[in-house]
Amino acid sequence: MDDRRDLDRRSFLARAVGGAGLAWLSAVAASVRLERAARAAPTPEGAAPKVLTPAEWRTLEAAQDTLLPSEPDAPGARDVRATAYLDAALADPDTEPPRRDLVRAGAAALDRLARDAGATDFAALDEAGRDRAVEAYARSDEGAAWVDATLAFTLEAMLGDPVHDANPGEVGWRWVGHVPGEPRPARKAQEGGR
């Protein structure tokens, strides 16, 4: 019961997505169809994206790099293939449509902010420019919820069990000195557990 009471979190998330909440109920089927149509070009890593468009991939990859930058002594989003993880998580039927839509809406919002700043898209900004764009977006309720959701997926990629194609070589656990609990999963529980 301890860890399910996350006091840090509840109020602003409810505020951010509460108003728009009903719309997803009817929009789910349509958005799934759109996603399938959008799958096209291979990612920079060679695999076909599951959900993200190439433009969204490029923007979110840059955004994750801003949220959790790579450093010489401390791994970041790029070191754990966080965008491939994010794309797979958004395609997972366990992920809620509103959360998936929020992450994608953030990509569009950051690109708009980048264009306002004179760049072609968010990824074209330099590091300081990206920081400013995320900072500006995070001042809105939607932007704050987007940072929270995208950061959560990025930290899953960094600190989750490698069985989920996260945390390659346990690089994230080694970074923070984390010792995983036993028993460890031999496969994804969702595949056999339901």
Partner: peptide
């Protein structure tokens, strides 16, 4: 079935 898999048991509706 009960492993210490945070993503499965604490972050997804397993």
């Amino acid at each position: 079935d009960f492993t210490k898999d945070e993503i499965a048991f604490c972050r997804r509706p397993t």
